[in-house]
Simulated scan of single mutants.
Amino acid sequence: MSPGPVAGRVPRSRTPAAPAPAPTEPEGPGVAPALRALGLVGPPVTVATGLLFYFGWARSAQQAEAMGLDESVFAMSTRDYVLRSVDSLYVPVLAGSAVVLAGLVVHAAVLRRVAVPAGRPAVRQVARRLAAAAWLVLPLLAALAVWPLPDARWLVVPLGIGAGVVVTEYALRLLELLDRLDGHAATRPAWVASLRGVVVGVLVTAALFWEVTEFAGVVGRGRADEVERSVGSLPAAVVYSKDDLHLEWATLHAQRIGDEGSAYRFRYSGAHLLQHSGGTWFLLPDGWHPGTRPLVVLPESSSVRLEFVGPPR
Rank of each mutant, 00 (worst) to 15 (best):
V218P: 00
A206F: 02
W147H: 10
V114R: 02
A224S: 11
A216W: 10
T15D: 15
D151F: 11
L298M: 09
V86I: 14
P29K: 01
V227R: 05
P3C: 06
V304K: 10
V156K: 15
V47F: 02
R120N: 04
Y240C: 02
E169D: 14
E214A: 14
Q125N: 06
A236P: 10
W288K: 05
W288A: 12
F266G: 01
G39I: 09
E248Q: 11
P121M: 02
M67L: 15
I257C: 11
A190N: 09
L89M: 10
L94S: 09
L273G: 00
E248C: 04
H246E: 13
V10D: 04
W135E: 08
F55H: 11
G232T: 09
S301D: 14
A134E: 05
R79K: 12
F209N: 08
R120V: 10
H184A: 14
E25H: 10
H246T: 15
P33V: 08
L295S: 08
T24A: 13
P92Q: 03
G42Y: 01
Y170D: 06
P5K: 06
L140F: 07
G103P: 10
Q255N: 11
S233D: 10
V123N: 03
T251E: 13
V91T: 14
P43K: 04
L175K: 07
W57F: 11
P19N: 04
V106T: 00
S88Q: 11
I161Y: 10
A18Y: 14
V202Q: 06
R188V: 05
A186R: 15
P235Q: 07
Y170L: 12
P21T: 06
R36A: 10
P290I: 00
S97R: 09
L140Y: 01
R229E: 07
V106N: 00
S77H: 06
L273R: 01
F55R: 05
E248M: 08
A7L: 11
P294N: 02
V126N: 03
V31I: 15
G30C: 02
V99A: 13
H272W: 00
G287H: 12
Y90L: 15
P23N: 03
A143V: 08
L83T: 12
L195G: 08
Q63M: 15
L144H: 02
E307T: 11
G183T: 01
A163L: 15
L104A: 10
A20N: 08
A98C: 04
I257E: 15
P235H: 07
A64V: 13
A207L: 07
P16L: 11
V114Y: 08
V218W: 09
R180S: 12
L111Y: 05
G261P: 12
D243P: 03
A7P: 06
V304I: 15
I257N: 14
Q275V: 10
W288N: 09
H253G: 03
P43M: 12
L141W: 01
R153A: 12
L51H: 03
A224I: 14
Q255M: 04
L245R: 07
Y240S: 13
R79Q: 11
A186T: 13
P19K: 06
R293D: 12
V105H: 01
L138C: 03
R14S: 14
V73M: 07
A7S: 06
A152N: 11
L101E: 09
L144S: 06
L234N: 02
V47Y: 04
V238S: 09
V126F: 05
Y264D: 04
L247K: 07
